[in-house]
Protein backbone atom coordinates (compact mmCIF):
# COMPACT_ATOMS: atom_id res chain seq x y z
CA UNK A 1 0.00 0.00 0.00
CA UNK A 2 1.74 3.15 -1.19
CA UNK A 3 0.00 6.24 -0.10
CA UNK A 4 1.30 9.69 0.51
CA UNK A 5 0.99 10.43 4.19
CA UNK A 6 2.93 13.65 4.46
CA UNK A 7 0.64 15.18 7.04
CA UNK A 8 0.54 12.06 9.17
CA UNK A 9 4.28 11.58 8.91
CA UNK A 10 5.10 15.16 9.82
CA UNK A 11 2.67 15.18 12.69
CA UNK A 12 3.97 11.89 13.95
CA UNK A 13 7.51 13.20 14.15
CA UNK A 14 6.41 15.84 16.62
CA UNK A 15 3.68 14.03 18.47
CA UNK A 16 5.88 11.00 18.95
CA UNK A 17 8.25 12.86 21.25
CA UNK A 18 5.40 14.33 23.20
CA UNK A 19 3.89 10.91 23.77
CA UNK A 20 7.20 9.30 24.67
CA UNK A 21 8.08 12.07 27.07
CA UNK A 22 4.65 11.90 28.59
CA UNK A 23 4.90 8.16 29.00
CA UNK A 24 8.28 8.49 30.69
CA UNK A 25 6.82 11.11 33.00
CA UNK A 26 3.84 8.95 33.78
CA UNK A 27 6.09 6.01 34.45
CA UNK A 28 8.21 7.84 36.99
CA UNK A 29 5.35 9.73 38.56
CA UNK A 30 3.41 6.52 39.04
CA UNK A 31 4.37 6.22 42.65
CA UNK A 32 2.74 9.53 43.55
CA UNK A 33 0.18 10.41 40.91
CA UNK A 34 -1.76 8.26 38.46
CA UNK A 35 0.47 6.26 36.18
CA UNK A 36 3.10 3.62 36.55
CA UNK A 37 4.69 0.86 34.55
CA UNK A 38 1.53 -0.37 32.86
CA UNK A 39 0.23 2.90 31.56
CA UNK A 40 3.71 4.14 30.75
CA UNK A 41 4.45 0.98 28.82
CA UNK A 42 1.18 1.06 26.96
CA UNK A 43 1.67 4.71 25.99
CA UNK A 44 5.15 4.02 24.69
CA UNK A 45 3.78 1.09 22.74
CA UNK A 46 1.07 3.38 21.43
CA UNK A 47 3.71 5.82 20.24
CA UNK A 48 5.53 3.09 18.38
CA UNK A 49 2.26 1.94 16.83
CA UNK A 50 1.72 5.48 15.61
CA UNK A 51 5.14 5.33 14.00
CA UNK A 52 4.16 2.05 12.36
CA UNK A 53 1.02 3.64 10.97
CA UNK A 54 2.86 6.62 9.55
CA UNK A 55 5.85 4.81 8.17
CA UNK A 56 6.30 1.22 7.13
CA UNK A 57 7.60 -1.71 9.10
CA UNK A 58 11.12 -1.62 7.74
CA UNK A 59 11.71 2.04 8.47
CA UNK A 60 10.52 1.61 12.02
CA UNK A 61 12.69 -1.46 12.48
CA UNK A 62 15.63 0.65 11.35
CA UNK A 63 14.85 3.48 13.77
CA UNK A 64 14.14 1.19 16.73
CA UNK A 65 16.23 -1.93 16.24
CA UNK A 66 14.84 -3.79 19.24
CA UNK A 67 14.02 -7.41 19.53
CA UNK A 68 10.78 -7.08 21.47
CA UNK A 69 10.83 -10.70 22.58
CA UNK A 70 14.16 -10.09 24.29
CA UNK A 71 12.76 -6.93 25.79
CA UNK A 72 9.95 -8.94 27.37
CA UNK A 73 12.44 -11.44 28.74
CA UNK A 74 14.63 -8.66 30.08
CA UNK A 75 11.66 -7.05 31.79
CA UNK A 76 10.65 -10.31 33.43
CA UNK A 77 14.22 -10.87 34.58
CA UNK A 78 14.41 -7.40 36.08
CA UNK A 79 11.13 -7.88 37.92
CA UNK A 80 12.07 -11.30 39.27
CA UNK A 81 15.60 -10.12 40.00
CA UNK A 82 14.31 -7.22 42.09
CA UNK A 83 12.17 -9.66 44.04
CA UNK A 84 14.99 -12.14 44.47
CA UNK A 85 17.37 -9.37 45.47
CA UNK A 86 15.50 -9.03 48.74
CA UNK A 87 16.49 -12.60 49.57
CA UNK A 88 20.13 -11.57 49.68
CA UNK A 89 19.33 -9.19 52.52
CA UNK A 90 17.56 -11.91 54.43
CA UNK A 91 14.14 -10.44 53.67
CA UNK A 92 11.18 -12.29 52.19
CA UNK A 93 10.86 -12.38 48.44
CA UNK A 94 9.72 -9.08 46.86
CA UNK A 95 10.36 -6.91 49.89
CA UNK A 96 11.08 -3.44 48.60
CA UNK A 97 13.34 -0.83 50.09
CA UNK A 98 13.48 2.91 49.63
CA UNK A 99 15.69 5.75 50.63
CA UNK A 100 16.10 9.44 50.00
CA UNK A 101 19.09 10.98 48.37
CA UNK A 102 20.13 14.57 47.92
CA UNK A 103 21.36 15.27 44.46
CA UNK A 104 22.80 18.71 43.69
CA UNK A 105 20.70 20.18 40.91
CA UNK A 106 17.57 18.05 41.33
CA UNK A 107 17.19 18.37 45.08
CA UNK A 108 15.66 15.65 47.17
CA UNK A 109 15.11 12.41 45.31
CA UNK A 110 13.44 9.32 46.63
CA UNK A 111 14.91 6.08 45.39
CA UNK A 112 12.83 2.92 45.35
CA UNK A 113 13.57 -0.62 44.43
CA UNK A 114 9.89 -0.67 43.54
CA UNK A 115 10.76 1.61 40.64
CA UNK A 116 13.12 -1.03 39.29
CA UNK A 117 10.36 -3.57 39.56
CA UNK A 118 8.08 -1.17 37.73
CA UNK A 119 10.74 -0.77 35.06
CA UNK A 120 10.47 -4.51 34.54
CA UNK A 121 6.71 -4.16 34.16
CA UNK A 122 7.22 -1.29 31.73
CA UNK A 123 9.60 -3.30 29.55
CA UNK A 124 7.32 -6.34 29.56
CA UNK A 125 4.30 -4.31 28.55
CA UNK A 126 6.14 -2.58 25.71
CA UNK A 127 7.74 -5.83 24.65
CA UNK A 128 4.54 -7.82 24.65
CA UNK A 129 2.41 -5.22 22.90
CA UNK A 130 4.99 -4.67 20.22
CA UNK A 131 5.61 -8.40 19.75
CA UNK A 132 1.92 -8.91 19.16
CA UNK A 133 1.53 -6.01 16.76
CA UNK A 134 4.75 -6.72 14.94
CA UNK A 135 4.16 -10.43 14.41
CA UNK A 136 0.64 -9.85 13.16
CA UNK A 137 1.85 -7.03 10.96
CA UNK A 138 4.69 -9.04 9.48
CA UNK A 139 2.32 -11.84 8.65
CA UNK A 140 0.41 -9.83 6.10
Amino acid sequence: MKTNDVILQTATKIVLFVIVLFSVYIFFAGHYTPGGGFVGGLLTAGAIILLLLAFDMKTVAKILPFNYMNMTALGLLIAIGTGAGALLFNKPFLTHAFTYAHVPVLGKLSLHTAAIFDLGVFLVVVGVTMTIIQTIGEDE
Partner: peptide, 17 residues
Protein backbone atom coordinates in the same frame (compact mmCIF):
# COMPACT_ATOMS: atom_id res chain seq x y z
CA UNK B 1 6.27 2.12 50.85
CA UNK B 2 6.92 5.85 50.63
CA UNK B 3 4.46 6.29 47.80
CA UNK B 4 1.36 8.36 47.39
CA UNK B 5 -0.51 6.63 44.63
CA UNK B 6 -2.12 3.77 46.52
CA UNK B 7 -3.11 1.78 43.46
CA UNK B 8 0.37 1.81 42.06
CA UNK B 9 1.94 1.04 45.42
CA UNK B 10 -0.38 -1.94 45.83
CA UNK B 11 0.61 -3.12 42.38
CA UNK B 12 4.35 -2.89 42.71
CA UNK B 13 4.84 -3.34 46.41
CA UNK B 14 2.08 -4.74 48.62
CA UNK B 15 0.81 -7.15 46.02
CA UNK B 16 3.90 -7.31 43.84
CA UNK B 17 3.47 -11.05 43.45
Amino acid sequence: AAGKNMVNVILVDFRGF
